[in-house]
Design a protein around this nucleic acid. Sequence first.
DNA 1: TTGAAAGCGATACCAC
DNA 2: GTGGTATCGCTTTCAA
Lengths: 355, 355
Amino acid sequence: MGGTLQTIADAVGVSRSTVSNAYSRPDQLSPELRERILETARRLGYSGPNPTARSLRRGRVGAIGVLFTATMSYAFTDPYAVQFLRGLSEAAERHDSGLLLLPLSPGDDEAGMNAVRNAVVDGFCIYCVPEWHRSLPVIRARRLPIVSGEHDGGRNAACVGIDEAAATRAAGEHLARLGHRRIAVIGDWLTVDRQTRPVTIAAPGDVPYYVSRERLRGYHDAFAAAGIAWTDVSTANAADNSREAGATAAAYLLDCAHPPTAVLALTDLLALGVLDALAARGLRAGHDVSVVGFDDIPEAGAAGLTTIRQPAIERGRIAGGLLLDPPADPADRQVVLPTELIVRASTGPSPTGRT
Amino acid sequence: MGGTLQTIADAVGVSRSTVSNAYSRPDQLSPELRERILETARRLGYSGPNPTARSLRRGRVGAIGVLFTATMSYAFTDPYAVQFLRGLSEAAERHDSGLLLLPLSPGDDEAGMNAVRNAVVDGFCIYCVPEWHRSLPVIRARRLPIVSGEHDGGRNAACVGIDEAAATRAAGEHLARLGHRRIAVIGDWLTVDRQTRPVTIAAPGDVPYYVSRERLRGYHDAFAAAGIAWTDVSTANAADNSREAGATAAAYLLDCAHPPTAVLALTDLLALGVLDALAARGLRAGHDVSVVGFDDIPEAGAAGLTTIRQPAIERGRIAGGLLLDPPADPADRQVVLPTELIVRASTGPSPTGRT
DNA sequence: TTGAAAGCGATACCAC
DNA sequence: GTGGTATCGCTTTCAA
């Protein structure tokens, strides 16, 4: 019952190579023999070659490991992540690969490192993993193909990114043009500690996490060009990328002596939280306070949120392609996708000519 | 660079069993030797035992396959599925297992069957898979532990379900009590073809998909008890479990000579679509037309939807436990969780004393 | 076409 | 505490 290749070989009276061929190379034996073998297998309840053994021998597993921070549920909670994974799975499907979810349990680095060490996969796709995470060296040690969903960490590795700074620069210019001078920025991982609280960022370069750093840099540069002093820009860190954290962070910024006329969130989820915070205070987005997000998740349109659109699904799809079917020319393994500023109702002229 | 156990063994001058022990059984050798081995491995860029080879030998992979219909993105799109997977991943994490997503590409049965045949996993969790699907026999042939997220298919297999019929019966009684007599039901997979259209279901037993069949049966029984003829209940099939399909199906039911005073959707997602359809017609849910859902996904509360709450996360968590740490007593391998009717604003007295 | 033999990389039992 | 040896189940030249 459910034996091995050998079982079938014995039962049919052939060698196991022949049985193997019956499954993997039908052209190597006569159709009759093949049918006889398959029939016997069926009768004996043999479901085909053992995938693990086959993987060992062939050196290919048929699965790619997906690594991201936080609990696994995050992948199912953040709309951007969902889109990215969707694109990734499309690519995986096309290459007959599955997706092995490998969460880095937040509280337990060791567990995450072990997950990476023991993952039975052909390659890794990493994203939303801060560059200081201890699982990164481990993943590189495995010497499997890696693709990053955001940037290459200066290692010339495969990656599919966007020009984060250019994207926010465009948004920053839009706001400056509208006359905003008192501005606040909300982002997660602006600091290493994951707490929702106002923080002081001397310069964007101080932000430890690539994505947040670059997005902040874009705003910084736009404001500098518009003559807005960086010291006049207040910043708040969000404990995580969630609507709730966005609302909490916004509360710190709004409930002060000189509230900003524009709040820029580094993700749409945070921006939606900002909108919640405004609503709770009876303030109108786009009138009293302008709000900008990033990502253009589906919910953003419904909420009338001005934001930066990035091709999330496409990003996942390309990441999958880079991993499963790498282009010959190394230069083609680093892809940068375009973004677009989408202006909706959440941004408008600054209510005060000047603050 | 990144060699094998043997490489390290040779380099250190010990046998490979010792190197293996250094990784898997630290207590079997002196700390000094172990450190020497690990250090050498590090120097040689060896990242530890090859997971595939280890899996073959140990007979354990550290991953469970998750099987569900539709594209993989469905898992990320349906809030109920998200919750279920969240519970499942919690359990998996606790047992050091990953989750290998194995979508059954809708148009391609063969691809799905191959995915199942070749999955490198220790067991399968299946859910939202119709009982006629061809991958089911394949999955059984693999003779790995299986847990169903909905029912056991009469096979005495592990499963974590709810009393679907009892749940909808309670909702049906609630409606009958409110005086509703012209009633419509919307569900997906009421028929094998996946089209959104009105259908005639002679009896709930005719519905091919377990979950929809049982939910429909519950309504059927409740109405029978209340003296509502089944022939007066109209039904519509939804092409898939989405808000859009719910709205489209509702349109068929609402835009007719004798529209129903109550529309019962077999899932919350469909019910939200019904609410959309009502809004588009200027009808008020709970006044002009009562609406009931199923699942109590987060969005249901915000929408004021009367629905049946089922413990989605818990269901996933228990499914994972059943798979990874099966109870000794077979009787304990079939779990039935409680449900609860949550009455919100979307249901109210029938606007007509009788139709 | 078919079959014999050599691994793929690791683990575990059992002597030493 | 350490090292030989068999084995996990399959694929793949290479001869016959």
